[in-house]
Structure formats: structure tokens, C-alpha cells
Amino acid sequence: MVDPTPFPRSEVLSVSGLTVSYDGKLALDGAEAHVPRGTLTAIVGPNGAGKSTFLKAVLGLEPSTGEVRAFGRPVAGVLDRIAYVPQRAAVDWSFPVRVFDVVLMGAYRRTGLLGRITTALRAEVAEALDRTGMADLADRQIGALSGGQQQRVFLARALMSRAELFLLDEPFAGVDAATEAAIISVLQGLRDGGATLLSVHHDLSTVSSYFDRVLLLNRRTVAEGTVATTFTRERLATTYGAALLQAAIV
């Protein structure tokens, strides 16, 4: 069911036979993905389909079997070229740290243990905050931010890592419309700059306008390809089960 790659470009991420089990229950059962460079792919599927697990397993954060290669090499060796933007709930929001410092953490590979925080680096942090619409909130404690603002801090931090592959887990969960527009334009800007992005996405009504590719996942890969060829009613029905689809589409 997987479409042949319509892009003659090099494959940035290739996943085959990716399997994850929790206590004997399969969360992922041989998932596949073949993602060409410079694309923005939505990972779509019902609750419990293993979408977040897929991202974590790709990064090696979950024990898994199967093969994952990024930039043609095992992921563990190229983590510096990959940025992961997790779901919002993943950190302690009462942690005593300012927005600026969180974003600066994205440059750790460049600063190292004791490297100086140069003026240029500070300017880069300011630019990342500006791109995500957070410039005014640099000095806020992160717990004092709204959900959408917290999400954008993570995105700004990912921008600092100068990654070529971005894996985002529901970047639009719980954000307002303005934030959603800001985030998607940053993601599309990254894609246009040559980066490759995969994002777990829940809102089927925006898939076509936001993304150029889609990965339909329900523990295994149901279909993968361009939105035009793959994001079809028939394949969504296979992914969600016909009855659920009605509810999901309204």
C-alpha cells in the first residue's frame, strides 16, 4: 500500500519493520516510512495508533526492533542533525528557568560545557524567539506561559539546534488559532529552506493545507505518500475504521 516515492530526491529518513511492544502488546507492528528531503509530512492515525511511539522509537527513546536510518546512517550516530519537539506535558513547567535559557539549551552542541555565550549566539536566540512570535517573552519563567507559548518555546529551541530533520509530536495540541498559524509558517519556512519535517497531527481538516505528505499510521503503516495521492477517503477509512472516520472528519 505504500506509494512509490514520487520525489527523485534523497531519502532523509527510512524506517522499515519498526516494532515496539509494551508488556507483550504491540504498540507498533512493522511500521514503514520513506521520507524524502525537503518535505513536510503529517503522521495521521487514530488514538492509540502509536504515532508518538513511532517518533520516540525512531529516535531510540523506546526499545524497538526493525531498521531506522537517517541520512543513510543509524540514528544514534546522527542525533546532532535531528531535532525532536515533544508533547508539551513532557517537562516540569515549574522549573526555575526563563524562556531565553530554554531556547539557548538548543545550542548546547555548539557551546559545550563551558563555551562562552557570545553576542552572536544571543542574537540567534533572539531571532529564534522572533520567528516563533515569542520575542516579548524572553525573560518569562516558562511556567508563566500559555500552552501555545510553551509549545513555541520548544520549537524555538529546536530551531537553535540547526537540525536538518525535525520530528514534532502534536505541535498544535491545545494552541490557539494565531499560534497554530505562526507554528505552521515556521515549519513551512524550514521545509522551504531544505529541512525535512514529520509532525504528528490530529486535525484531518487541515492536513491538505498544511502538509505536502502524509503517513497514515495504525500500528503499521497503512499508506504513505503525497497528500494528493494518499490522503483519500478510502485510505482514511482503512486507517480509522469506517465508523470512526465520520466522527474524526466532523
Partner: peptide, 22 residues
């Protein structure tokens, strides 16, 4: 003093810290 950055990053967000090679 020496390990301030990795320590702060690990305690704040271990998943991200790992991605940064810590």
C-alpha cells in the same frame, strides 16, 4: 560549575538532553 549546563538540561528535560549528546 563545570557540569552546570548538562546537569540543568538533564534535570529539566532528559529526553532533549539526550538528543544534544548528553
Amino acid at each position: 560549575v563545570v557540569f552546570w549546563r548538562p546537569l540543568a538540561m538533564t534535570v529539566f528535560d532528559p529526553v532533549f538532553a539526550r538528543g544534544q549528546g548528553i
